[in-house]
């Protein structure tokens, strides 16, 4: 394979990863890293470095659309970014100190748990009332969004902001350690714990991922792990895919179908991570 062809192959895979990532509220890094390392034989460090920049690209590209449609909750995002950036810093510190095996095992377990929780909630159709929360009122976190499928504005209330903050700290740490956006952890934290609607959770997660990833990208850049030859086409492809996804698919995709797809992906990634932790 020539470098020219390689650039286009990477570009193609990146478009696919960006498309899927934008629909699920994840950065696409989870899909890209295995493709780059296993299929295209790229050194793992460069794959992770390219992934982290692509994560920013996905987030910013898709978030531009979500913010315009007022699907992302900017106040929730800013409040939770307190925890994700602090977590990303912790993760960057820890990445040099903790062995890869432990990280993979913990990561796999956390993902499997959140997949199972989401699966359980998918079966229960009745919606429990959202408990009152004084801090959420004080922070003005409640909001509303325009629901395309029913054609009306849907209001929602937010609860347990501190629990959300704690989970976001964990998500940020994972992001800093592994060079992924960790939207797979952010979406359940908002959706299940803070009770934001799934579409709002996905949009807000996408919006926040850029800031979390930027916090760890600085470290990867300084280490020389962001290689323009690989990160360049990845960045362009992923943004293109994410733009297509958020522009033309998001409004048409049914929420329960989206959730089912998301649960499948979570379980697959969890197994992959556990296997990697077990065998390494």
């Amino acid at each position: 394979m020539t470098p020219f062809l390689f650039t286009f192959v990477v570009l193609g895979f990146s478009v696919g990863a960006g498309l899927l990532g934008s629909l699920l509220g994840i950065g696409g890094g989870l899909i890209l890293i295995p493709v780059l390392t296993l299929l295209l034989k790229v050194d793992i460090h460069y794959a992770v470095g390219a992934s982290i920049v692509s994560v920013i690209a996905t987030s910013s590209g898709a978030a531009a659309a979500y913010v315009r449609e007022r699907m992302a909750n900017l106040r929730v995002a800013m409040f939770l970014e307190l925890a994700t950036t602090a977590g990303a810093l912790t993760g960057a510190f820890l990445s040099g100190r903790v062995g890869g095996r432990g990280v993979y095992l913990v990561f796999g377990a956390v993902m499997a748990c959140s997949a199972l929780v989401m699966l359980r909630r998918m079966n229960s159709t009745q919606v429990a009332p959202v408990p009152e929360d004084a801090l959420a009122d004080r922070l003005g976190l409640h909001g509303s969004y325009w629901d395309e499928s029913t054609g009306r504005e849907v209001g929602y209330r937010v609860t347990r902001p501190l629990a959300g903050l704690g989970l976001m700290y964990v998500a940020g740490t994972v992001s800093g350690m592994l060079g992924i956006g960790s939207g797979a952890l952010k979406v359940p934290a908002m959706d299940l714990t803070m009770r934001l609607p799934l579409k709002v959770s996905t949009a807000t997660s996408n919006f926040m991922i850029g800031v979390t990833a930027a916090a760890s990208a600085g470290v990867y850049f300084a280490r020389g792990h962001i290689d323009p030859f690989i990160a360049g086409p990845v960045c362009v492809g992923v943004t293109l895919g994410a733009w297509l996804g958020s522009r033309h698919l998001m409004a048409k995709v049914n929420a329960s179908w989206l959730r089912a797809l998301f649960v499948c992906l979570l379980l697959w990634v969890a197994l992959e991570m556990l296997r990697k932790g077990w065998t390494s």
């Binding site: 920049v53 920013i56 690209a57 987030s59 910013s60 850029g210 800031v211 990833a213 930027a214 990208a217 600085g218 850049f221 962001i226 323009p228 030859f229 990160a231 360049g232 960045c235």
Partner: peptide
Amino acid sequence: FVMAGLLVMMAVPV
């Protein structure tokens, strides 16, 4: 130039 583009990308969230 590619690297400069990637740095701009990193600066966007900031």
